[in-house]
Amino acid sequence: MIEVKDLYKTFDNKKMVLNGITETIHQGEKVVIIGPSGSGKSTFLRCLNLLEQPTKGNIFFKGVDITDPKTDINKLRQQMGMVFQHFNLFPHMSILENISFAPIKLKLQSKEQALENANKLLKRIGLSDKVKSYPNQLSGGQKQRVAIVRALAMNPSVMLFDEPTSALDPEMVGEVLELMKELAEDGMTMAVVTHEMGFAKEVANRVLFMDEGAIIEQGTPDEIFNHPTNQRTQDFLAKVL
């Protein structure tokens, strides 16, 4: 579904963040990306929907080269949901508006359909009573779950998660991971950058270990967590597990 070919990213200060990544994420796959901070894993994820402009290389989404300037990136982003570390709900909109705004504005659904869908999604995450609330009235875990269904409201074919639980109080991590697991079980294609090794073990089809802008090692959770072959992977896991 997503094919990354020889991806390089250098920031303005000449710092090399991504150092030639070639990787494919298949339909229905749940790929979890782990690695020390500064390893480029968030940058890699953000390149996938072009929130970061790659310096070199190509990214194909459903066979379309999204790095081609002629590609309508807005159209493609509608199919790639993204969840951020800091939720990024729109504070001036109610929860219902947060979820239904983009589908209505982009005319993907009629207003009635979009509102009905938003209500359905809120019901699914048990927040029906928050329809008229504003983001500031929600807990961190609730905000992130709303952010997830806001992305789902676009009916994306892939979901990108950028450290979705890193900004949460520990007691709220569970509810967010639970929702992500449900998504995984529903067959959603997912790419997740996270420090939650438990989630990686349980949900991932494939774990990528990144360091210094490159994918150093990858495999099934069992291979990565129980039989890592690379020294750096071993060092990293020794620290976090």
Binding site: N74, R77, P91, K105
Partner: peptide
Amino acid sequence: KGQTEAGRSLGLSQSRTMISIVLPQ
């Protein structure tokens, strides 16, 4: 900046994001 990124990641155009997400705030 996350507000712009959230808007753009939903497929909203640059100007739509500016008008509906950033400017009201």
